[in-house]
């Protein structure tokens, strides 16, 4: 405290009065862009290479590494259609729930570890031999396979895909399109190979069932 009362107040007032006339430090943002550090990481932008194409390959490594899961992305396929590579759009919710589960520390069912039952590949190979490994006769192959196995096991579909060179998705799509082709054994509901147990396990893990959106 000073000897003269009020001198501190006067000093403060004089400081503010001097500041009144000094140049201002405000950056008038939209007109004057602030100088962002070269190393600044907060920039949300995709980089281009020398040829002018995007460097991002939508590989999702960054999204998987992001601890707070704030990164998500979509990409163009070869036909110029926009779609998201990391699983189908309808599984977004599941992925979100899964990451919530992972954060909560509870065990998360992983559909990647859902094994299909092994089958006798030789039977499939002989059928393929009969049809000359011709992808154009896919329906015939599938019907013959169903005749042999009584339904279309996942292993058989994978073998057909491998030998004929047709994508698994196309074979699965064909198999699931025709009503007379069964993907599950008789009595078991025909459904995607692993979705049902996964969803059931997920529902059990979250405690409450998911919203009935199906």
């Amino acid at each position: 405290m000073n000897l003269i009362p009020g001198i501190g107040l006067v000093r403060g007032m004089s400081l503010t009065l001097r500041r009144f006339f000094q140049p201002k430090v405000t950056i008038r943002y939209p007109e004057v862009p602030s100088d962002v550090a070269v190393k600044f990481r907060g920039r949300l932008q995709l980089l281009y290479d020398e040829n002018g194409s995007l460097k991002c390959e939508t590989c999702f490594q960054c999204a998987q590494a992001c601890p707070i899961e704030c990164i998500d992305m979509g990409g163009m396929d070869t036909k110029g259609r926009f779609h998201v590579h990391w699983g189908a759009a309808e599984t977004y919710g599941e992925r979100r729930e899964e990451s919530a589960l992972r954060r909560s520390g509870r065990p998360v069912p992983d559909p990647a570890y859902e094994r299909f039952t092994p089958i006798d590949i030789a039977a499939v190979d002989s059928i393929l031999e009969d049809f000359d490994h011709d992808p154009a006769q896919l329906l015939g192959i599938l019907e013959a396979t169903q005749a042999a196995f009584d339904y279309l096991p996942v292993g058989a579909l994978m073998r057909i895909s491998e030998r004929t060179g047709t994508g698994y998705a196309q074979i699965y799509g064909t198999a699931s399109f025709y009503d007379h082709l069964r993907l599950g054994a008789l009595g078991a509901p025909a459904s995607a190979p692993s979705a049902a147990p996964y969803l059931a396990a997920l529902a059990a893990a979250t405690g409450a069932g998911r919203q009935a959106d199906a």
């Binding site: 405290m1 000073n2 009362p5 009020g6 501190g8 107040l9 000093r11 403060g12 400081l15 503010t16």
Partner: peptide, 11 residues
């Protein structure tokens, strides 16, 4: 800090 350190009200 000259604005505050000796300011009677603040002290």
């Amino acid at each position: 800090q000259g604005l505050l350190n000796e300011n009677e009200v603040f002290v």
